[in-house]
Structure formats: structure tokens, C-alpha cells
């Protein structure tokens, strides 16, 4: 396994299969949180953090427990429980040991349990990366690389969109399009732009 493979996985997850614009995961925070650049950065930092840990843990559980014991059908229920407990544990650790980090990410952590991007990436790793005869460490590396790329792509889009949003607020939008509709149109145009990257890798 060479490094290029991991780099490809990161770039592909970040730009080409962008989590918001191409896979439609995490639309709620995209429309809701990204009103200010600072909260957009906080949210995407929290998502990146939890996404990397969650995909490592879920991949491990699937490869080392669910598959050997022949019970892949409980993956959904196991994954959501793992992610939910992870979020709680991360919150405890931040509360105890890193007050500054908790201050910046704290309010976004409870929102993350029901953020479909996290569960979506964990499930996507199993369907896209996992194969029965792939060595554990290779698969884990690819899963983590995908999670890093997805988290970065999420942050990129949410940050870019929050900057556009600040402009939108001061521009003269027709009343019928104000708010969510014009945001969706902006997202559609961004999605068209990103569609041009399909097939690069």
C-alpha cells in the first residue's frame, strides 16, 4: 500500500465525492449552522474530530467482531450506539481536560449524534472499502483517510457557504426566495461547479 492511495482517498472524498454537494449528507447543519464563519469553523472541527474517531472504531468493530461472528446485519444498530456513546465520551473528556476546546466545540457536540454525515461515512466505509480479504490495517488506513477527506470537504463547503451567506444577507433577494430557497440555489450552483471535477481521479 503506497501513500498515493491514501492521498487519492483523501482528495476524492474531499473534492470529488463531496459530502454535502454530491452525497447530500449533513444538509441540516449546512442550512442551519452556517450563518457565521466562526460557528461554521467550530461545527466542522467537531464533525472532523468525531468522524475520524467514529469511522476508525466502526471499521474495527465491523472487521474484528461483526464479520467473524457472522452478524453483519446488526451493523446499523451497533454503529449508531457506538457513535452516540463516542460523542458522549468525547464530551466528558473535553469537559474534564480541555476547557478551551470545549468552549469552542461544546455546543456542536450534541448536534452531532443525529448528524447523518457521521453514520453515513461509517456505513459508506463498509460498503465501499471493506472486503473480506483486505488486511485490517490497510482497510483501517483507507477508512480513516476517507473520514479525514470527508471532514475536510464538509468544513470547506460549510465555510465557503457561510461567507456567501454573509453576502446574501445584505443583497436584495426577492421575498419569495429569501432564506432557504436561495441557499438551496447557491448550493445547486456550487454543486454544478463541483460536478466538473468528476472523473479527475
Amino acid at each position: 500500500m503506497s501513500w498515493t492511495l491514501f492521498a487519492t482517498a483523501i482528495i476524492s472524498a474531499m473534492l470529488i465525492n463531496n459530502v454535502i454537494l454530491m452525497q447530500f449528507l449533513g444538509i441540516c447543519p449546512f442550512l442551519g449552522v452556517s450563518k457565521r464563519s466562526s460557528s461554521a469553523i467550530g461545527m466542522s472541527g467537531a464533525v472532523l474530530f468525531v468522524m475520524v474517531i467514529a469511522s476508525a472504531v466502526t471499521y474495527t468493530i465491523y472487521d474484528l467482531v461483526l464479520h467473524p461472528f457472522d452478524i453483519p446485519y446488526i451493523s446499523t444498530i451497533a454503529f449508531i450506539l457506538v457513535i452516540a456513546s463516542l460523542v458522549q465520551l468525547v464530551e466528558i473528556i473535553l469537559k474534564r481536560y480541555s476547557k478551551s476546546l470545549y468552549k469552542s466545540l461544546g455546543i456542536y457536540l450534541p448536534l452531532i449524534t443525529t448528524n447523518c454525515a457521521i453514520l453515513g461515512v461509517s456505513e459508506g466505509n463498509i460498503t465501499n472499502i471493506w472486503t473480506a480479504n483486505m488486511p485490517y490495517w490497510n482497510g483501517l488506513g483507507l477508512a480513516v483517510a476517507t473520514a479525514v477527506g470527508t471532514g475536510l470537504g464538509f468544513g470547506l463547503i460549510i465555510f465557503a457557504f457561510s461567507s456567501i451567506r454573509e453576502r446574501l444577507d445584505s443583497s436584495n433577494v426577492p421575498k419569495a426566495w429569501k432564506g432557504v430557497p436561495i441557499s438551496l440555489v447557491v448550493a445547486g450552483i456550487m454543486s454544478l461547479a463541483f460536478f466538473g471535477l468528476v472523473g479527475v481521479i
Binding site: 419569495a176 426566495w177 430557497p181 438551496l184 445547486g188
Partner: peptide
């Protein structure tokens, strides 16, 4: 064909929501 692809999803939902908002306004 764009409407079966991701950009079309955003734009068609935007059109529908704008129609609803237009009525409300």
C-alpha cells in the same frame, strides 16, 4: 438530464420551496 443529478436536486427543491414561500408572502 441535470435534474436527475445532484445539482438538479438542490434546484428543484429550491423551486418548490420558493413557490410555497411565494404563496405565504
Amino acid at each position: 438530464a441535470m435534474f436527475s443529478l445532484p445539482p438538479g436536486a438542490f434546484i428543484s427543491l429550491a423551486i418548490i420551496l420558493a413557490g410555497i414561500q411565494f404563496k405565504k408572502v
